[in-house]
């Protein structure tokens, strides 16, 4: 698997740039990934979503669906798409350092 250098950090990522080991993650890495994804700064609202995604992933082994994300994190869907343009489930997962949303096959 490729390694990637982000700022001062070297992290393991898959072919699409999703982190393979969420324990390597920290806020600075998140900021750096976000910038590569075209999000200049991570606001408190971004971080609310990112933290929720991480909590779900660590508890359950998978990230939440969009419906659950909005219901549980308190961030409305419209805002969610504004925060993470072009697909919050995937983009927020990448920034949160967790696996890409996936099925079994």
């Amino acid at each position: 698997m490729p390694n990637k250098t982000i700022g001062a950090f070297t992290i393991e990522v898959d072919d699409e740039g999703f982190m393979l080991d969420h324990t390597q993650w920290n806020r600075d890495i998140a900021t750096a990934i976000a910038q590569q994804e075209g999000i200049a700064t991570l606001t408190d609202r971004h971080l609310l979503v990112v933290d929720f995604m991480r909590k779900e992933f660590i508890e359950k082994g998978t990230g939440p669906s969009i419906r659950r994300l909005t219901k549980e994190s308190g961030v409305e869907t419209k805002e969610l798409y504004a925060l993470f343009p072009g697909g919050p489930a995937k983009k927020a997962a990448k920034i949160a350092g967790i696996k890409k949303p996936a099925g079994c096959i």
Binding site: A89, P101, C104, I105
Partner: peptide, 16 residues
């Protein structure tokens, strides 16, 4: 599908 594709696992995506 809400997922990134019909096949989301690398090997399945490659084969199928």
């Amino acid at each position: 599908t809400p997922l990134p594709g019909a096949f989301t696992k690398p090997r399945a995506a490659k084969e199928l």
